[in-house]
Write a protein that binds this DNA or RNA. Structure first.
Length: 483
RNA sequence: CGGGGCGUGGCGCAGUUUGGGAGCGCGCCUGGUUUGGGACCAGGAGGCCGCAGGUUCAAAUCCUGUCGCCCCGACCA
């Protein structure tokens, strides 16, 4: 039997049996999170939080490199502020948590727990901006937000979640648009080069756009069960918020003008994406760039060789640390090597090194990849040169694997019947023409539960065809059932 | 908010039909033997059976209510 076919992890439901249960088993058993005693809320445990910290670090660097600064705004938003932008309040009202009391007193004005911070931030921006010289204003904040969700799932949709939200102000529409697309590009780069998740960037339809936005852009990823996940969004807010919050500036031509704002965010949902894009029946498969532990060393301790093996294992660990590899030496006693192998595979550690008497004799270590199960023997003298390459190789092949999967799962249905059949039987993305009419979009959703994930940027302008629903001429868009 | 399911040591469950000892497996603790794909032996700790009422000589079990969680749908990062 091939090692990959053996059922090592008995506690985890198979993806094929019940994908949703598989997901829940994984997040609990790898100790990424635990349910908290509040509906829809979770405790993010150290192993899950370490992934978030890695994502934060990789993204924060990019946010700063593109000229943004971090700041922090209040958790509470006076209800009247949230209500200023009509579409915005309509979009978020059903899911806000309200604070009505402070201490022993009823509040004169109720406070919304931020579901997103446009309102409070724009309120502050109006005070800070007077001249074109104050622009662009480029700020990001890392924080938690609360949305009272009816249907929650760990990491994918929780009542409270962690994210970053960038909020920028510009003098011109063109600049705001450029910013909106630039940050979408940053997200795409983050996902593809760090999380090894290929995404489709594009624009959201009117129906799917952010409440209060002029235009919303998105990166869409495909999960292993064929459902799409919105992994990040970037909004051109036009002058909607500037007008209601009075963000005005005096331009070079002396005229007082309303500014243009944008906002963009990604959340802890990305952790859910990592799990569902790369994971398999044996557990997580973490890309080395975000894995809390990149290399785990499992010493094979025999009675006679114990001291020698442990000494060598410690040496190897120290050597890897010195070249900035995140390494863990699992020298726990009382667990057999086989048990540890399974444990660390479930936790998705990209590479395992086994060091036992045989390896000592051969002056090397045995390396086993989590993604392919491939075993190799590395000489001690080659370790510091080989391991970074091996990790990069794993990173690349995870991305390639996910990309190939997405390509195989992207169909071009001929007609509506074909579309419905493919959705049910093959799942995945359906690239089909759409006339642009919201009514067709609505009908398709009602009939199939599939939504337009995005209008992709990269489609050929000459690619025209009959709308999936009404047959009028349209352009290609991605449909899918989604999380 | 609709439909379904579940609440019994840390986890997974049996026991509830037909009321009367709170049990099993895993995990945990101690000691010993082990260690190249989830080791073994011996001893041990741990639960007012989600909560509140009620029926009864007696309730995990029957009745009423209530709370929570999970899954699937309608709405959303």
């Amino acid at each position: 039997m091939n090692i990959n076919d053996k059922e090592f992890v008995k506690e985890v439901t198979s993806q094929a049996v019940d994908f949703s249960q598989w997901y829940l088993d994984i997040v609990l058993k790898t100790e990424m999170m635990d349910y908290a005693p509040i509906k829809g809320c979770m405790a993010i445990r150290p192993y899950g939080y370490a992934i978030w910290e890695n994502i934060q670090q990789l993204l924060d660097r990019r946010i700063k490199e593109t000229g943004h600064k971090n700041a922090y705004f209040p958790l509470f938003i006076p209800e009247s502020l949230l209500e200023k932008e009509a579409e915005h309040v309509e979009g978020f009202a059903p899911e806000v948590a309200l604070v009505t009391r402070g201490g022993n007193e009823e509040l004169a004005e109720k406070l919304v727990v931020r579901p997103t911070s446009e309102a409070i931030i724009c309120e502050m921006y109006a005070r800070w901006i007077q001249s074109w010289r104050d622009l662009p204003l480029l700020i990001n904040q890392w924080c938690n937000v609360v949305r009272w969700e009816k249907n929650t799932r760990p990491f994918l949709r929780t009542s409270e979640f962690l994210w970053q939200e960038g909020h920028t102000v510009h003098a011109t529409e063109e600049e705001a648009q450029e910013e909106t697309l630039k940050m979408l590009g940053v997200y795409q780069d983050l996902l593809e080069s760090e999380l090894a998740i290929p995404v489709i960037p594009g624009q959201k339809t009117e129906k799917e756009k952010f409440a209060g936005a002029l235009r919303t852009y998105t990166i869409e990823a495909l999960m292993a069960d064929g459902k799409a996940l919105q992994a990040g969004t970037s909004h051109n807010l036009g002058q909607h918020f500037a007008k209601v919050f009075e963000i005005k500036f005096q331009d070079k031509d002396d005229e007082l003008k309303y500014a243009w704002t944008t906002s963009w965010g990604v959340s802890t949902r990305l952790i859910g994406a990592l799990i569902m894009v790369h994971g398999d029946d044996r557990g997580l498969k973490l890309p080395p760039r975000v894995a809390p532990i990149q290399v785990v060393i499992v010493p094979i301790i025999g009675k006679k060789s114990k001291d020698e093996v442990l000494r060598r294992a410690n040496e190897v660990a120290a050597g890897l640390r010195s070249i900035n590899i995140r390494v863990e030496l699992d020298d726990r006693e009382g667990y057999s090597p086989g048990w540890k192998f399974n444990q660390w595979e479930m936790k998705g550690v990209p590479l395992r090194l086994e060091i036992g008497p045989r390896d000592l004799e051969n002056k090397g270590v045995t390396a086993v990849r989590r993604d392919t199960g491939e075993k190799s023997f590395l000489l001690d003298q080659d370790l510091s040169a080989q391991l970074p390459l091996l990790l990069q190789n794993i990173q690349d092949s995870l991305f390639e694997h996910a990309l190939k999967f997405r390509e195989q799962k992207t169909y071009r249905p001929q007609d509506y019947g074909d579309f419905k059949e493919a959705l049910d039987e093959k799942k995945g993305f359906m690239l089909a023409h759409w006339c642009g009419d919201a009514r067709c979009e609505e009908e398709i959703k009602a009939g199939t539960k599939a939504t337009i994930r995005c209008i992709p940027f990269d489609s050929d302008p000459k690619d025209k065809g009959p709308c999936l629903f009404c047959q009028k001429e349209g352009r290609p868009v991605y449909f899918a059932r989604s999380y």
